[in-house]
């Protein structure tokens, strides 16, 4: 390698971690961030999806549109992350599951640190395909025929990746990869918790597939829980 080349390489080696810049380690006296995400405005009526194919497998239960679920004023399936954390708990890459049972992705939104392997399960006994609409990560579109009960994909870089099944047009879900391990998806009560956060001041972001992003500044004190409530307006 010539000098210029090595210089570029050296720079990229130095620069890449500087940008990715999350360093995992032991957290002493960590606090936590917990709270909930509220939906502001009138919640839309749940929409029934038209299951026009493979009805004997996919049509067993009524399919509802999962892209905007509000339960009692709480926003479900919103992804909560700390965007500006540089140092914190260790990233433990555990396999996560993405189930296609009954021609529906469960959970609808899965969030995890980048580098995680997603195990896509097909218990339906029919053909599905897993088609990612990603820009940062390399897009993939893999068939998962009946005989292939599981299939693994890895999301290498931070990105919210939409996944669709072209065989069953109504199927779509999200694989959200983040830079840090501080990520949670809101449950039925719209609540979330990020634990083992080192004391400090952070930007917490809520992302929802339909409603976009909003952020708040949160200060975490050692061994204490910082409460935060987000209010996301409907569009």
């Amino acid at each position: 390698m010539n000098k210029f080349g090595s210089l570029v390489l050296a720079m990229s080696l130095v620069a890449a971690p500087a940008m990715a810049a999350y360093e995992g380690g032991d957290v002493k006296d960590g606090g936590s961030i917990s709270g909930s995400v509220k939906f502001k405005g009138t919640a839309p009526a749940p929409k029934k999806l038209d299951v026009g194919k493979d009805k004997e497998v996919c049509g067993k239960t009524a399919k509802m549109d999962q892209s905007l679920i509000v339960e009692g004023g709480n926003l479900v399936n919103a992804v909560v992350t700390i965007t500006d954390i540089k140092k914190g708990k260790k990233i433990e890459l555990k396999k996560v599951q993405f189930d296609q049972n009954g021609c529906e992705y469960t959970p609808h939104v899965v969030a995890f640190p980048a580098g995680t392997t997603v195990e896509v399960i097909n218990p339906d006994g029919i053909l599905h395909n897993v088609h990612s609409y990603s820009k940062v990560n390399t897009a993939f579109n893999q068939a998962q025929p009946k005989f292939k009960k599981t299939l693994e994909v890895k999301i290498e870089k931070p990105e919210a990746v939409e996944v669709k099944c072209d065989v069953h047009g109504w199927m779509h879900g999200w694989l959200v990869a983040t830079e840090s391990p501080y990520v949670a998806v809101t449950d039925k009560s719209g609540s979330f918790k990020l634990d083992n956060v080192p004391a400090g001041s952070y930007t917490v972001e809520v992302w929802h597939e339909k409603l976009g992003k909003s952020t708040q500044k949160v200060t975490v004190k050692a061994k204490e829980d910082a409460k935060v409530t987000f209010e996301v307006a409907g569009k």
């Binding site: 395909n129 897993v130 088609h131 897009a139 993939f140 579109n141 893999q142 068939a143 025929p145 005989f147 292939k148 299939l151 072209d166």
Partner: peptide
Amino acid sequence: PGAKMPSFYPGGP
């Protein structure tokens, strides 16, 4: 790129 046709290979029976 972006084709709806999925890859069946590698991964044949």
